[in-house]
């Protein structure tokens, strides 16, 4: 297993003058898994966006390290996979085209066709791979997001509401993805669902007073 770590130091996020959360710190290493829980509006998705470097924290820092060496956030993104309800793929392209185009933009140097077919089969979209995403149901779009997130075999997988819109078969796929990730890297799950939170070894509870409590 490649040695990967994620260190979050004193993260605070405010919108206007309202603090969403304050001074969150934790660190995760390969094999660790963390559930971020809390009521609606407690900042779970905001924290997820900060971990993925698509949102800047008001204070504090996120640092990824690979094989013991700190890496820039731009380099870290090559090792990040994310699934969330607010992440959208391109409706005007087919599922296969989405994976191919986004993989080329990411400059991945693996055989894209092989990898795409592997993950489209895993998420059960192989038969619909040439259909436009606009014709997909919300559950199928969620499955495609998993194929997109896993295509480059990320060391860090971040899931926000991981099973939203999925049927029982889809949930089983997510469970296998989660188990696989726990043995190969870092897993972060933001959820309100107690069952999903139990997938993880640690829990960060975002509270009413913009405080966070880490349970092990």
């Amino acid at each position: 297993m490649i040695d990967v770590s994620l260190t979050v130091a004193g993260i605070t996020k405010s919108f206007s003058r309202r603090a969403i959360f304050r001074d969150i710190s934790f660190s995760l290493h390969g094999g660790d898994s963390l559930a971020i829980t809390g009521r609606n509006g407690s900042g779970k998705s905001t924290l997820v966006k900060i971990l993925c470097d698509v949102l800047t924290p008001t204070a504090g820092a996120v640092q990824y390290a690979i094989d013991g060496k700190n890496v820039s956030m731009e380099s870290a993104k090559d090792q990040l996979g994310m699934v969330s309800p607010y992440l959208q793929l391109y409706d005007e392209f087919s599922g296969l085209e989405n994976l191919e185009l986004l993989s080329r933009i990411r400059s991945n140097n693996f055989p894209i066709d092989e990898r795409s077919s592997e993950f489209l089969k895993l998420v059960g979209l192989w038969d619909r791979r040439k259909d436009m995403v606009r014709t997909y149901s919300s559950g199928m779009k969620q499955r495609l997001k998993y194929a997109f997130a896993l295509l480059h075999r990320p060391l860090v997988l971040i899931l926000d509401e991981p099973t939203s819109n999925l049927d029982a078969e889809g949930v089983d796929v997510v469970k296998s993805v989660v188990e696989n990730q726990k043995s190969s890297g870092i897993l972060v799950v933001a959820t309100n669902d107690a069952m999903e939170a139990r997938w993880c070894g640690q829990e960060l509870q975002l509270g009413d007073q913009a405080q966070a409590e880490l349970k092990r």
């Binding site: 698509v54 933009i105 990411r106």
Partner: peptide
């Protein structure tokens, strides 16, 4: 409008 900004942010650097 399509909500794909974040997807691009994940796969490409700002200069790209």
């Amino acid at each position: 409008e399509r909500g794909t900004t974040m997807t691009l942010q994940l796969v490409a650097s700002p200069s790209v």
